[in-house]
Simulated assay, not measured.
Amino acid sequence: MHFADFVAGSVGGAVGVVVGYPIDTVKVRIQTQRRFTGVWHCFRSTWKTEGVYGFFKGVSVPVTTVSITSSVVFGTYRNCLQCLLQLHSGSPEATPTKLDVFLSGLAGGVTQVLVMSPADTVKVRLQCQMEPRQSATTRTLPRYRGPIHCMLTIAREEGVLSLYRGAPALCLRDGPSFATYFLTYNTLCEWLTPVGQKRPEWPVVMLAGGLAGVGGWTVGTPMDVIKARLQVDGMGKRKYLGFLHCITESVRQEGPGVFFKGLGLNCMRAFPVNMVVFVTYELLLGFLRTPP
C-alpha cells in the first residue's frame, strides 16, 4: 500500500481548490442559471451584488473535502496501478501500459464520488445562492447560512439521499475524466523526459499537469453541466424527475450546446489549478519517499 500518494494528493488537491475556486463559482452559475448572458456578465453581477466574497462562497467545503477526495483519487490510482502491474508483469516496478494508467485513473475517479457527492452538492448550492451585500437596508438572511446549515437543510427538507442527487452524472464525469487526466499526464511526462532520466523536470511537470487538467475537463464538462443542474434542483420548484429527464429537458430547451456550457472556464481554470496540483504532488511525493 502506497500511503505517500494519499498524503501528497491531499495537499495538492487543497492547494488547487484555492487557486481555481473563483472561476469555478462563475462556471457553476453560468451552467445552472440562464439569466447570465456570458462569463463577463456573471462576473460583473457577482462582483456588484456580493463583492469578492461571492466568488469564494462554499470554499471551506471543497478545501476540506477535496483534500480528502484528491487523496482518494491519487491513492487509489497509484495502488490500482501497482496491482495491475503485479498481475500482468509480476513486478509493481514494471513500466505501466497506457491501458493500465487509463483503468487506474478510471478507478480513482469513480471511487472518490462516494466521498465527494454530498460535499459537492453543498458547494454548488452555496455558489448558486446570490444574496446582496449586507447593508443597513438589506437584512434578509440567505436560505443557507453556511456549509453545515446547507447540508442539514437539504437533508431535512429533501431527504438525505438528495445529498447524492447528481451522483450518477458525477460518476460519468469523474471516471472518464480522471482516466484521461492521468493518461495525459503520464504520456506527456514520458514523451518529454529524456531517456535514462527517472523523474521529469519541473517545467515538464507543470506543462503536463496543466494539459492533463484541460484534457480531463474537456471530457468531463458535459456531465458536469448535468450534475450541477441536478444538485441545484430543489432550491426552488423541482424541474427534473431524474438523470435522464435532466438530459432530455436541457437539450430540448437549450440545444446540444448546453453540454459545453462552462467548457472554456473549466479549461481556463484547469491549467493553473492542475499545474499547481501536480507540482505540489510530485514535490511532496519526492520528499515523503526519500529515505532518511
Rank of each mutant, 00 (worst) to 15 (best):
V7R: 00
S10A: 12
G12P: 05
G20L: 09
P22K: 02
I23C: 07
V28W: 15
R29Y: 03
I30P: 00
G38C: 12
V39L: 07
C42F: 00
F43T: 04
S45G: 09
T46R: 00
W47N: 00
K48P: 05
V52L: 15
P62D: 05
T64V: 11
I68R: 12
N79H: 11
S89N: 12
T97M: 14
D100Y: 06
V101C: 01
G105I: 15
A107H: 05
A107M: 11
G108Q: 06
T111G: 01
V122M: 09
K123D: 01
R125E: 04
Q127G: 08
Q134R: 15
T137H: 04
R143W: 06
Y144T: 06
G146K: 12
G146H: 06
G146E: 15
C150N: 14
C150H: 11
E158T: 00
L163T: 00
Y164N: 02
D174C: 04
D174Q: 01
W191A: 02
G213V: 04
D224T: 09
V225G: 01
V232Q: 10
V232N: 00
K237M: 11
C246P: 09
E249H: 08
E254Y: 01
F259G: 01
F259Q: 06
F260H: 05
G262L: 14
G262W: 07
F271M: 00
N274D: 15
V276D: 02
V277Q: 05
L283P: 01
L284V: 09
G286L: 03
F287G: 08
